[in-house]
């Protein structure tokens, strides 16, 4: 960690980065923090804890406030994938990022069920093995359509429409959210219009989900949201060989008029 702190400090002092976004431990609490050269002492609190924050989402806000500047950011595997998706969607504006890679511990990887718990360049930590528990997905895929409907309806019925899954999602960036469209999801009713509410979210996740699992971790009703999004990732890979968060110059087949992919008929 000391080495990473030194690297960040050096980059700040040399003016390579305008500011740095990371996670800090403050009296036992973990929180995201943004610092510039003016409050360099903050850097001492930098840590790579078990807990996570949607750093990509915070970064897009900071980028909007600092156009044209280089911003240093601590990235895990999931943060890196999120930043790739946000770059594709022009959500970082003219700001550029300098990434400081942190590899997750095997414990964190296991807890997050993370298929890629490390970024492409690692400045701190050791590469942990990828984890891929997909028992529920396999079970659901083998079920009959009727059983699946019963399963999901029971799950969606638990939804309290807190919008937690959307708010935490690092790649949900729209200013106007379809989930708040009164024509599709009437207000004042809990659970929200099923399955429309979750269908819309899943459809939007199909070409964006970076499989960080924050939605499921946040959900107060324990709806296995990640399983739907994982299925959609799989579908996108099978149909179009498209994996969100893989490379910044990939284009989503659903968002472009290009040919390619599997055209039916």
């Amino acid at each position: 960690m000391e080495e990473l702190k030194k690297k960040v400090k050096q980059a700040l002092e040399e003016g390579k980065i305008h500011g740095f976004l990371g996670l800090k431990a403050d009296e036992g609490d973990i929180s995201p923090f943004f610092m510039t050269k003016d409050n360099i002492a903050e850097l001492e609190k930098l840590t790579a804890p078990d807990g996570r924050y949607s750093l990509g989402k915070i970064l897009s806000r900071i980028a909007a406030q600092n156009p044209g500047k280089a911003i240093g950011v601590m990235v895990r595997g999931c943060d890196e994938r999120a930043i790739i998706e946000l770059t594709k969607a022009s959500q970082l504006g003219t700001a550029s990022t300098v990434q400081f890679g942190v590899a997750c511990t095997p414990q964190t990887a296991e807890k997050c069920n993370c298929p890629q718990p490390y970024p492409s360049t690692i400045d701190f930590g050791e590469k942990a093995k990828s984890v891929n528990h997909g028992e529920l997905l396999t079970k659901l895929e083998q079920m009959s359509v009727e059983d699946r409907l019963a399963y999901w309806m029971a799950q969606f019925d638990k939804c309290i429409k807190c919008y937690g899954c959307r708010n935490i999602c690092p790649v949900c960036y729209c200013q106007e959210c379809t989930l708040e469209d009164k024509n599709l999801v009437p207000g004042g009713i809990v659970p929200p219009a099923t399955p429309v509410f979750h269908f819309i979210k899943a459809m939007h996740m199909a070409d964006r989900c970076i499989d960080c699992g924050l939605c499921e971790a946040t959900c107060p009703s324990n709806i296995p949201l990640r399983t739907i999004y994982r299925h959609m990732r799989k579908v996108m890979q099978e149909l179009f060989d498209y994996v969100p968060g893989r490379a910044a110059d990939d284009k989503s087949p659903l968002g472009t008029l290009e040919e390619g992919g599997r055209l039916i008929h």
Binding site: P195, A202, M232, I264
Partner: peptide, 23 residues
Amino acid sequence: MKGNYMTAKRIPVVKELLGFIGI
């Protein structure tokens, strides 16, 4: 020109999602 390319790519994805949710 290419509007229906969108449809051709989108509908198979929608079908998959409908199937997974149970329709």
